[in-house]
């Protein structure tokens, strides 16, 4: 895990979003972007309503997915990095 991923993350609480069955739409008016999160990314988005570390997310999702912890952790890091690169999640303590 990169050092940048070591902290706690939460979603940007002011971004508009809506669940559409298992997917979630997130809108970023400032960047004029719409994102369609798949089921797993949407679940991580849901968990990031409150600050979570990657370990927190791994523990939460470990009970929901039949996958090894290492593989799950890598996937979560990839997902959170992706969300962060799009400005959808921020480090806890940021706005």
């Amino acid at each position: 895990m990169s050092a940048a991923m070591a902290g706690r993350w939460r979603r940007d609480g002011e971004l508009p979003f809506q669940k559409l069955d298992e997917e979630t739409i997130v809108v970023d008016p400032k960047r004029r972007e719409v994102h369609l999160l798949n089921e797993t990314a949407a679940r991580i988005w849901e968990l990031l309503a409150s600050p979570q570390s990657v370990d927190d997310l791994t523990a939460a999702l470990g009970a929901e997915y039949d996958v090894g912890e290492a593989e799950l952790g890598e996937a979560i890091v990839e997902c959170v990095e992706g969300l962060a690169s799009k400005g959808l999640v921020v480090t806890a303590g940021a706005r």
Binding site: P29, L36, E78, C79, G82, L83, K86, L88
Partner: peptide, 27 residues
């Protein structure tokens, strides 16, 4: 796990004609 923000490969019916109710300012 698929990357976030990537649209699903899906067969979505071609979007219906847009009407002004759903036009997004800025789009």
């Amino acid at each position: 796990m698929a990357a976030p923000g990537r649209s699903f490969a899906r067969a979505v019916a071609e979007a219906a004609p847009r009407c002004q109710d759903e036009l997004i300012v800025g789009a």
